Amino acid sequence: MFKNDKEVSALSELKHHGIIGQKWGIRRTPEQLGNLSKKDSKWIAKKSDKITAQAEKKTSRELNKYADELMKNPNAVTKSGKLSAATITAYNRRKAELMSQSVSSLRSPSGKVIQFVAKRGEMGVMIALADEGYNMAQLKNGVWSSGRVAYKKTVLDKA
């Protein structure tokens, strides 16, 4: 039935495929999972356009200078005349960084910090709420339009 001893030993081992430290029957709250509270989701739905517009206005001059620098690179445009993926990614990262700095003092009703995350594969940024001290470097490769973090299977709650 078994070809070798490795198959027998693999069947005799007990493996755990759950979340380390989680107790049986105890579920995590939506806040622990990173979901937005009702108060935050209403607040962000109401104010996200205004916050984004103000942040873009504050950073537009510096972003235009950065775009000019990017376009001086001979690899910025492909042979077909479109912007290269590297150029788009670099621009989005810089835009997200500058816009996040411009709204660094702004907080949601629950105290979460407003951050901008670079989109991947298309021009633009996405607004997100994060806990104080959240390591945004985890999202350095950007987020797809579906909300999935690039190179990870996790999905962000898009605000």
Rank of each mutant, 00 (worst) to 15 (best):
S41D: 11
A85P: 07
N141Y: 10
S146N: 06
S110C: 04
S80Y: 09
K3G: 14
G81Y: 10
L98A: 01
A137C: 04
K58P: 11
K50D: 15
K38I: 08
K38V: 11
I19V: 13
K3N: 15
E69Y: 06
W144S: 08
E31C: 02
A118I: 03
W24K: 11
T87N: 07
I26L: 04
K50C: 10
V113W: 05
W24E: 15
V103S: 03
M123W: 12
A130S: 10
A150I: 07
R61L: 12
N135F: 02
K95Y: 02
P74H: 02
K72V: 01
N135A: 07
Q32E: 15
I88C: 05
R120F: 12
L106V: 13
Q138E: 15
I44V: 13
D68S: 08
L129Y: 05
Q101L: 06
N141A: 09
A137P: 05
W144M: 11
V8L: 09
E97W: 00
D49Y: 03
R61E: 15
L106M: 08
K46S: 13
N75W: 03
S60Q: 12
K39F: 08
K58S: 13
A130G: 04
D68L: 00
H17F: 09
E132I: 10
K6W: 08
R27Q: 14
E62S: 06
A130Y: 08
D157E: 15
L129R: 05
D68W: 04
K140R: 14
S48K: 10
V155N: 03
E56D: 06
P30R: 09
G34T: 01
